[in-house]
Simulated assay, not measured.
Amino acid sequence: MTLDQLLQDHCQALEGRPLAAAEVLKQLGVLPEWRHKDGSIQRSYAFRDYFDTIAFVNALAWIVHRENHHPELSVHYNRCVVAFNTHSVGGISRNDFICAAKADALYAQRPFV
């Protein structure tokens, strides 16, 4: 899927198998800041201070709640690590890439700074 397709798409309830390793690598090419690590896709976002970090976390929480696909978050003073995987498929799915693209779009807009 292209970046535009990921941004326009929405998460769906999924069952079955995770994406194959080759497909994960292909999709990571669309989202170059993301890495495949520990069974998920992860990215660290940097901020000016704690307030901006928390503002991003709150805005991201609203987006992923609408998608019904929630990440693991590691929140620090001036950064937040976001990790997506799909429990229902036991690995990485297209939903993870949809939400990752939306997280990147949020970060690019910087409405919280």
Score class of each variant (00 low, 15 high):
P32R: 14
T86L: 14
F51H: 09
H65S: 14
A103I: 02
Q8R: 13
D38H: 08
S44E: 10
F97A: 04
L14T: 06
G91F: 02
C99F: 15
C99W: 05
N78D: 13
A55D: 05
N68Q: 12
D9N: 15
D104I: 02
A100N: 03
R43C: 12
L73R: 09
R48K: 10
R17G: 15
D38G: 13
F47K: 03
R17E: 15
H76C: 08
T53G: 06
H87N: 10
I54T: 00
H69Q: 05
S74N: 14
K26V: 07
H76Q: 15
Y50C: 06
W34Y: 10
L60P: 03
V81I: 03
L25A: 13
A46M: 11
D4W: 06
D9L: 12
M1I: 04
F47M: 05
A21D: 15
I54C: 07
D52A: 14
Q42D: 07
F112A: 06
G16Q: 04
A21M: 12
N68Y: 03
Y50K: 09
A83D: 02
D4Y: 06
P32T: 05
R66M: 04
M1W: 03
H10P: 09
N95E: 05
V113Y: 05
W34V: 00
N78W: 02
I54M: 07
H76G: 15
D38S: 12
E72D: 15
H76M: 14
V30H: 01
H69M: 04
Q27R: 11
A103Q: 03
N85E: 08
A101N: 05
R43A: 05
A101T: 00
H36C: 05
Q8G: 15
Q109Y: 01
N58Q: 07
F51S: 08
A101L: 02
R66F: 00
G90N: 09
L25N: 08
E23C: 10
D4N: 11
W34G: 01
S93L: 06
F51K: 07
H87Y: 09
V57G: 08
E15L: 06
A59M: 00
E15P: 07
L7S: 12
